[in-house]
């Protein structure tokens, strides 16, 4: 259980990070706003509680790791990495610009703290499985976290990976689904159908836990929940969370933030 001070701290960090994401995306003139804002609490929790990066050796993989399979959510991840000190916050201004260490999608070679290059959806779960498997073989006691989009579940490779992970008892693997119900051009259910995700994953042999993905207590208990199986955390989130006019709006998947939008958004975040 998190104590009140911890929760207060994590909430403050999240508010700060939302503001920085908006500033960064406004400056860049493009970027995936909705799917970054839905990720904030999950990332803040992971990087302040679970993933401790050695600032001298950020590339070392002898630790808990995160594969952001929905790589387009990287503005949130870059902001968190800057917040914990992997690079200066000024660097965020260079996001997507020529010669920047911050690419449009995560690049493990260019950006300190990025554990894996992603951006082509559907691939990160398999990579996370490889990490978890290597730790098992080596007898290392680390955990691997993966974050998937709910639309991303339409990729076939996810289900190849789902079969593999449970057969291999990967209890050191914890996967979040950023279940924000929207994808690029439509609602997820219009493509995927109205399905019970929890039942599906259970049937594939996973430990399945459904939570409010913006609630730190719920994130905490899901992560700490003991199990012998690979774990899927279905995190119900709101795409565009925190900015009223962006919430649950398909177009805010990657709409350009105008000056007007920017001012309105900052106003909301100040409250």
């Amino acid at each position: 259980m998190l104590n009140t001070e911890e929760i207060f701290f994590l909430k403050q960090k999240s508010a700060q990070i939302r503001k920085t994401i908006i500033e960064m995306l406004y400056q860049a003139g493009s970027g995936h706003t909705g799917g970054s804002l839905s990720l904030v609490e999950i990332l803040v929790y992971l990087y302040f509680k679970e993933i401790k990066i050695n600032m001298e050796k950020p590339k070392s993989t002898e630790r808990n790791m995160l594969i952001l399979s929905k790589g387009h959510g990287c503005p949130a991840l870059y902001t968190v990495l800057a917040e914990i000190g992997l690079f200066n916050k000024d660097v965020l201004k260079t996001y997507k610009k020529l010669n920047s260490i911050l690419q449009g999608h995560p690049d493990r070679l260019k950006t300190p703290g990025i554990d894996m290059s992603t951006g082509s959806l559907g691939q990160g779960l398999s990579v996370g499985i490889g990490c978890a498997l290597a730790d098992k073989i080596k007898g290392d006691n680390h955990k691997t976290y993966v974050i998937l989009g709910d639309g991303e579940l339409q990729e076939g490779q996810i289900w190849e990976a789902a079969i593999f992970a449970s057969r291999n008892d990967l209890d050191n693997l914890c996967v979040f689904i950023d279940n924000n119900k929207l994808q690029l051009t439509s609602k997820v259910e219009e493509i995927f159908g109205k399905r019970n995700l929890s039942l599906i994953w259970k049937d594939f042999g996973w430990e399945s836990i459904e939570i409010d993905g913006h609630d730190f207590d719920e994130i905490d208990s899901a992560v700490l929940y003991p199990t012998k199986k690979p774990k899927i955390v279905i995190a119900n989130t709101i795409k565009g969370k925190g900015i009223s006019f962006m919430e649950n709006k398909i177009e805010w998947h990657s709409k350009k933030i105008s000056e007007d939008d920017y001012k309105k958004a900052l106003n909301e975040l100040l409250i």
């Binding site: 990579v127 996370g128 290597a134 990976a161 593999f164």
Partner: peptide, 24 residues
Amino acid sequence: RFIQCGIAEQNMVGISAGLALKGM
């Protein structure tokens, strides 16, 4: 150290990437 991935080549390639990240 032999891993049977079944008829799922894309997942197998992804797993190999993860193994390599961890130094294998």
